[in-house]
């Protein structure tokens, strides 16, 4: 035991290098797993098609107001254009939470234990997991971007690059959220519970499928829409993320775009910190 013999090659490596290598390993595992999960991939492709092509095209004619016979859009965009950035967010949301929830399976099927007895720090294990999930989520978000031309959303490379940045932030925050939820769950009843209890309510109340008319004042808005709905939308952090994405993709903002970036950054850090706190304790 005291002889240096076989331990030498590993012992000589710097601890940081070891942690980074492990981070890469865990990230790679997450990505590989997701690529091999057909169900997840099918969902990632069919969801945007349904939302953009079916719902978007179907509701397109109704997304306008008629004043004295003159047709105007509530916002200066077609419904298809309006909903497009939100569908990007939706696809990211589903995939992020789905990856994060696999923490439960890692726990049940012992994989987690295998990494917890490694020299990797807990923080790095969690970071690898969250980054992996976020990477897959951004990839699924990109699947939506491919539909841009069908939604009449012209994109420059710079737009795409900016959007990727925002998508990455959103994916990181949402994956952390998923891990926080997964850590608090002892037995798992299926992903449907998550999609119905977390993802869809967040999505529907984020001003993603209907705009809160920016031309109206705060008081007028509360006349047009019920008070509680406006309140929920305003308190939903996802509202600001979708808004920031909309700013980049179709150049339309209901709020200050910097607000979206700030909120995503804060939520990303806070949720990751909570996830890490739970993870360390478990």
């Amino acid at each position: 035991m005291t002889s240096a013999g076989p331990t030498a090659p590993t012992a000589r490596r710097s601890p940081l290098l070891i942690q980074l290598g492990g981070l890469y390993g865990i990230w790679l595992r997450e990505v590989k797993r997701a690529i091999r999960d057909r169900g997840q991939l099918i969902g990632g492709i069919s969801r945007p098609i349904l939302w953009v092509l079916i719902l978007g095209i179907g509701l397109n004619p109704y997304f306008r107001g008629e004043v004295y016979g003159e047709v105007t859009f509530v916002v200066p965009f077609t419904y298809l254009q309006f909903i497009f950035p939100a569908v990007v967010a939706l696809n990211i949301m589903f995939t992020s939470v789905q990856s994060a929830v696999s923490v439960i399976w890692d726990r049940e099927f012992g994989f987690l234990r295998e990494v917890l007895v490694s020299p990797m720090s807990r923080g790095m294990v969690l970071l690898g997991k969250v980054l992996g999930g976020a990477t897959v989520a951004v990839f699924h978000g990109c699947l939506v971007l491919l539909l841009a031309r069908f939604a009449d959303v012209p994109l420059t490379w710079l737009d795409v690059l900016k959007a990727l940045g925002l998508m990455a932030m959103l994916a990181f925050a949402l994956t952390s959220l998923g891990v926080v939820i997964a850590n608090r769950i002892r037995s798992f009843e299926g992903f449907g519970v998550f999609s119905n209890a977390v993802i869809l309510p967040l999505y529907f109340t984020s001003s993603s499928i209907f705009p809160i008319d920016p031309s109206l004042s705060r008081a007028q808005t509360r006349v047009v829409y019920p008070d509680w709905l406006v309140t929920i939308v305003e308190y939903n952090p996802l509202t600001y993320a979708v808004d920031a994405l909309r700013g980049v993709l179709i150049n339309y903002n209901q709020f200050d775009p910097r607000l979206g970036i700030a909120i995503m950054a804060i939520f990303g850090v806070v949720l990751f910190a909570i996830a890490l706190f739970d993870f360390r304790r478990a």
Partner: peptide
């Protein structure tokens, strides 16, 4: 330590080689 747990702890979706490689990465084997 080299540990073999009572319950299986392999990643079923990875290949045999990938499982070993992941372990090597996580344990910092060059």
């Amino acid at each position: 330590l080299g540990i073999v747990f009572q319950e299986p702890s392999l990643d079923d979706r990875l290949t045999v080689h990938e499982n070993l490689n992941l372990h090597g990465l996580v344990f910092g084997v060059p």
